[in-house]
Amino acid sequence: MNMLVCVKQVPDTTEIRIDPVKNTLIRDGVPSIVNPFDAYALEAAARIKDKDPSSQIVLLSMGPEQAKNALKECLAVGGDKAYLVTDRAFGGSDTLATSYILSSAIKKLEETEGKFDIIFCGKQAIDGDTAQVGPEIAEHLGYPQVTYALEVFAEDGKIKVKKEVEEGFEIIGVKTPCVITVTKPSFDPRYPTVKSKLAANRKEIGAITAYDIAGIDRERIGLKGSPTKVKKTFTPPVKTGGVKICEDCGTATAKKLIETLVADGII
């Protein structure tokens, strides 16, 4: 299998705090990480490669130079090659423009890496939380898609996906080439070893700019190519003064809670 995994570097949103005075996000000192869902996507690809070692896993990220760190981390846990799509002209892209750029870069990569059978994305990036880029890449390329994948199996060239749905799971068969977006499985992705980290550090990361992608439509990238505009951002109203209920024993606490709820007209 020839596989490509889209990897985004994101701020660790669990480390983000709100500045209580200015009411803005404090991003300073927030570490950048590999989007967790992309790590699960890479794990899904790596498991296919475990069974079929002739497989190739190519990593692709769009972002600033710094995103190379995320790619290096992924090279250490199963990626064979990595490419960074980076250009000032890409700044300000919304999901439609981002997916257009990534899909154009994928077509360009296929000239040298061969056609990809599966393009993996995370279900969503934890900064934007949109879950749109994967399906949009599929649309740009005209490929079928399976979203919310937990596990992916490639047997005799056929792809089967265990997909999470509201009522449980589905097993979906999908034709290649395809796009699969991966959600959190119940297992952890593999860890790098000292050796694999060293090897990853030595690997070259290819850079792709807008000039490298022949025929990219400059009207469709960056702010100009983004139909959605952010009008404003604000921090959600923080709930302050939740009523604390804590009596000497559980029974008293429970009774106090009921009293309070009844008094407040909640029940």
Binding site: G242, E247, G250, A254, T260
Partner: peptide, 27 residues
């Protein structure tokens, strides 16, 4: 969780829940 809660009930749920259930039944 208490940062988003309207009612912050501090205690052992194994003690609190049965009483809560019984009280609501009574109500």
């Amino acid at each position: 969780i208490f940062n988003v809660a309207d009612y912050c009930v501090v205690g052992d749920l194994f003690e609190i829940l049965p009483v809560l259930t019984a009280e609501i039944k009574k109500l």
